[in-house]
């Protein structure tokens, strides 16, 4: 029981960052109908930028996280402007190929810039875990959880309570009519891609100090982000949030009780199972906000 409680806490920490990754990816698909293969690389980019800011420039840890997220948004906006905007009328296959190419360029760029050796990001938190009853959690992980949830809430407020959020949801539902209302569709697309990329970079910046930073770190994470999004139902924001936490819990519990070696496999096993039973994902299309 105590062990289960511990896994629950760990799973929540992991799930929070997975949810960030998932909503970033599903948002881009929902608004722009673009399958964003660069998502995992933006995650790696966020981690490397945090490393650069903390270790190379000697900047404050918290400032570095914010900086990495903003740079991720800027990179996302650049990708949208340079690659996706000219491809607006192209078919989905061509756009996918371009995004796969961009992901390869980003990953090899990271390899070239930082080398293949994994980096460690120093953090200001004490290495001794906080112990509450049977549960112990590292302060850094607690910080990651708090920031993830703050970002999820902030994102939800942006989407639900602001004019740009309303314009984004309207564009999500009916781009042509949104244009008739005066929405600048190009602008919404840039903002959407920048926000989606920023969320991925934020997840990388948060998990970078927890794990190690390496050029291929985006591969598995990109794959997981797709799994989360498909699990939740393509284009569904609540679905991606639920899917993110579900994947976090499954990995933690299966890793803890069954086999640590195969922890990643259990997540995908769950996805195969759910899709076999409910092919439209956890949150079907008609219930999607957006």
């Amino acid at each position: 029981m105590d062990q289960a409680l511990q896994h629950l806490v760990n799973g929540t920490v992991l799930g929070g960052t997975y949810a960030l990754l998932g909503i970033g990816l599903t948002l881009v698909f929902g608004v722009m109908r673009v399958v964003n293969f660069t998502h995992g690389e933006l995650y790696a980019f966020g981690a490397y930028m945090t490393y650069a800011a903390v270790s190379l420039l000697g900047l404050d840890f918290y400032l570095s996280l914010a900086l990495a997220t903003l740079l991720g948004m800027a990179l996302g906006a650049a990708i949208e402007f340079l690659l996706l905007r000219p491809m607006r009328r192209a078919d989905i296959d061509s756009t996918m190929l371009v995004m796969i190419g961009a992901a390869l360029v980003l990953q090899n760029g990271e390899m070239w810039a930082w080398g293949g050796v994994a980096k460690l990001i120093p953090n200001p938190f004490p290495g001794t875990p906080l112990v509450v009853g049977p549960v112990s959690v590292l302060p850094l992980r607690l910080f990651v959880l708090v920031v993830s949830i703050a970002l999820l809430l902030g994102f939800w407020l942006l989407l639900d309570r602001t004019r740009i959020g309303m314009a984004m949801r309207a564009t999500f539902q009916d781009p042509e009519t949104a244009a008739l209302m005066g929405v600048r569709i190009n602008w919404v697309n840039s903002a959407t891609f920048a926000i989606g990329s920023g969320l991925a970079a934020a997840a990388g910046a948060l998990l970078g100090p927890v794990f190690m930073v390496s050029p291929t770190m985006g591969d598995l994470v990109g794959l997981k982000a797709f799994a989360i999004v498909i699990l939740g139902g393509l284009g569904s924001l609540p679905g991606a949030t639920i899917g993110g936490f579900a994947l976090g819990f499954v990995e933690e519990f299966a890793g803890g009780f069954v086999s640590t070696e195969y922890r990643d496999a259990f997540g995908f096993l769950l996805i195969i199972l759910i899709l076999a039973l409910k092919p439209q994902g956890l949150v079907p299309a008609k219930e999607r906000i957006g």
């Binding site: 004019r163 309303m166 314009a167 949801r169 309207a170 539902q173 009916d174 042509e176 009519t177 949104a178 008739l180 209302m181 005066g182 929405v183 999607r288 906000i289 957006g290």
Partner: peptide
């Protein structure tokens, strides 16, 4: 332009739909 087929934003509330009309 009030488009053919009504084209209200189905998942926005009625109030939000009206606010979309006044976006500019």
């Amino acid at each position: 332009h009030c488009p053919e087929g009504r084209r209200v934003f189905p998942h926005l509330s009625v109030r939000e739909n009206l606010a979309m009309g006044a976006l500019l």
